[in-house]
Amino acid sequence: GVGFRYFTRHRAAEYGLTGWCRNTPNDKVEGEIQGRAEIITEFFKDINSGPRGARVVKLETEEREIIQDEKHFEIRR
Results as ranks from 00 to 15, higher is better:
67 I>G: 04
42 E>G: 06
60 E>Q: 09
56 V>A: 07
36 R>T: 08
55 R>V: 12
61 T>G: 08
37 A>C: 05
37 A>V: 10
42 E>F: 00
55 R>S: 11
50 G>E: 06
57 V>K: 13
37 A>F: 11
63 E>Y: 06
41 T>Y: 07
48 N>E: 15
57 V>Y: 14
46 D>H: 13
62 E>D: 11
59 L>P: 11
56 V>W: 08
53 G>R: 02
62 E>S: 14
40 I>S: 01
34 Q>S: 02
62 E>K: 15
59 L>T: 11
51 P>M: 01
44 F>D: 03
41 T>D: 15
42 E>R: 13
38 E>Q: 10
59 L>D: 07
62 E>F: 05
67 I>Y: 08
47 I>S: 00
52 R>I: 05
64 R>H: 06
42 E>I: 03
43 F>P: 03
61 T>C: 03
57 V>H: 14
47 I>H: 00
34 Q>C: 04
63 E>K: 13
44 F>C: 11
52 R>T: 12
39 I>F: 04
63 E>P: 08
39 I>P: 04
53 G>E: 08
36 R>K: 14
35 G>K: 02
45 K>G: 06
59 L>G: 09
46 D>E: 15
37 A>L: 06
41 T>W: 02
60 E>T: 13
63 E>R: 11
57 V>C: 10
57 V>P: 06
46 D>I: 00
64 R>C: 07
58 K>A: 14
48 N>V: 01
53 G>F: 05
61 T>N: 09
49 S>K: 14
62 E>R: 14
49 S>W: 09
51 P>T: 01
53 G>H: 05
50 G>S: 04
46 D>A: 05
39 I>D: 14
50 G>Q: 02
59 L>S: 05
51 P>W: 07
51 P>S: 08
51 P>A: 07
34 Q>D: 03
43 F>E: 00
67 I>T: 13
43 F>Y: 15
41 T>R: 14
58 K>L: 14
46 D>M: 06
35 G>F: 02
41 T>H: 13
35 G>H: 04
46 D>N: 12
39 I>Y: 07
51 P>Y: 03
56 V>I: 13
39 I>W: 05
66 I>H: 12
